[in-house]
Amino acid sequence: MRPRVAVLSGFGINCELETMAVFRMAGAEADRIHLNRLVRGEKKLSDYQIMAIPGGFSFGDHLGSGRLLGNRLRFGLREQVREFVTSGKPVIGICNGFQVLVKMGLLPGDEDVSLSQTASLALNDSGQYENRWTTLEFDHDSPCIWTSGMDRIRVPVRHGEGKFVTNDNSLMDKWAKSGQLVARYVDPSKQYPSASDEILPYPISPNQSWRNVAGVCDPTGLVFGIMPHPEANHSTWLGATWTREKKEQGEGEGMQIFHNAIKYVS
């Protein structure tokens, strides 16, 4: 049976169609589920093997990106979400979805799934929203099931608040050690692996994230959040410089992330 993916929608989430599309391309069934259907019990998260919180502008990013949707989940769906995560099912949050996961405390998270916020995504140092392509590198030693076996992909960032920070530097060391700082911005002209802690110049690091972090996972590697949009590179002809590359046209570099999750739950 094809795995079922719950793709959340509503309140300004706006990448749900392409997020459903990439899961379908990767062989899953994807349902769009309005958050209120879960809150009211019309749908149950437990009927799904994977949950995705797509990108968007939930509540217009007012009061901080992801904040209000995070609160709706934290206060309205607390037990359903905890149960989903503790039962070992993968969760992905992309862009605004990542911001939601961080603000509700699911990422970088802790063993107890206590849902308390320990990191944040601050305004880009550029002071504004930007859409530009970046190169990401993944940590092979990370427990993250979403990125396993992956080296690098090219993906667009489309955010104004993507600077990963925390108020406790020792946490950064802890997360680094446990492989939770799984996705980082790198200079594409450097050979793999080149991820470094020193903040790379703008715009290689589009937001001046600490340690160039672009995405993190929880200690189990099942919950994964990422600022750039892997679903936006589902086909080669969506690349930033594809007209300059002599390549067979087909699946894009972002798809492996979704294949990995489908493989994990199959």
Binding site: Q128, N131, W133, R158, T243, R244
Partner: peptide, 22 residues
């Protein structure tokens, strides 16, 4: 133009900018 999202919906083939440095 960079501060407009020109790629949401994951459909943009020829984007506002092109070239080696986009």
């Amino acid at each position: 133009v960079r501060s407009y999202d020109h790629e949401v919906i994951a459909q943009s083939v020829i984007k506002p900018f092109c070239g080696a440095n986009s």
